[in-house]
Simulated scan of single mutants.
Amino acid sequence: MTSLKHAASKNFVPIGSVLALCGAVALTGCSASANGENPTSAASNGSSNASASSSVVASGAASSSAASASPQEATPTSPAKNIPEPVMPKEAKEHSAKGLEAFTRYWFKVSNYSQKTSDTSQLMSLCVEDSAYCEKRKELADQFRDRNAWPVGGEASIGKFFTQMKTTPAGYTHALIELKETERKIFDATGEQKSGRAASSSVSVEVYSIWVNGEWKFLAPHPIEGADN
């Protein structure tokens, strides 16, 4: 792969055309409570056993409740469940190279979350209002929900990250990243949807974000022309 520092010397595509990279990077369970009753009368010869039995039932119910709330990744027969919402690291709130990196890595975690859960509120709150790329991500997540379908795989992650904190005339700061995505397949109640397949990939892209009102907002990624993958 072309080194990110070398790629930084290239001329970048104007911010208005940063819309192309949309395909690469797209339940809460119920919990039970135990209501085991302990004997209130010590007169019964079986009171000790009843108490012990009740404790076992309560313990078992609590364990079952904990298990039902555990995160479950999607499988070919079931969508993801109980996926926790990513928490923004404190570094992502800094206006610095370190802050931009933390924010960008966090953004892609939120994008993964929205793809698994179809909950896009957090995703859109991290985007600039007119980001066509973010709207495409939202549409993808909405389609999963509307079609009662779900993705298996397709998680995006960032390898290398590089930024010189340079900004465009419009005020967007760009960074260069190594963007990796696992193989993705789409399933619904009828089985795998062939049209939803996406191979695993590793590409060099630049990403644009803007620091406004004391926080970062994400615009879009864009392929780096001529970069080796």
Rank of each mutant, 00 (worst) to 15 (best):
S3G: 09
A8G: 03
S9A: 14
K10W: 05
F12Q: 15
S17C: 10
A24N: 07
G29M: 09
S31I: 11
E37M: 08
E37F: 00
P39F: 01
P39E: 04
P39Q: 04
S41P: 02
G46M: 09
S48P: 02
S51T: 15
S51I: 13
A58P: 10
S59A: 13
G60D: 14
S65H: 00
S70K: 15
Q72K: 09
S78D: 05
P86L: 00
M88C: 05
E91N: 08
E94G: 06
A97K: 10
K98T: 15
G99M: 08
E101M: 06
Y106V: 07
D119L: 07
Q122N: 11
L126P: 13
S131W: 03
K136W: 03
G154C: 02
I158Q: 14
K160Y: 08
M165V: 13
T167H: 14
T167C: 08
A170K: 12
Y172C: 07
E183M: 04
R184G: 06
K185F: 00
F187S: 00
T190M: 01
R197E: 10
R197C: 00
A199R: 11
S201Y: 15
S201K: 15
S202W: 00
V207D: 02
I210A: 08
G214L: 07
W216I: 13
E225F: 13
E225M: 10
G226H: 06
D228F: 01
D228M: 07
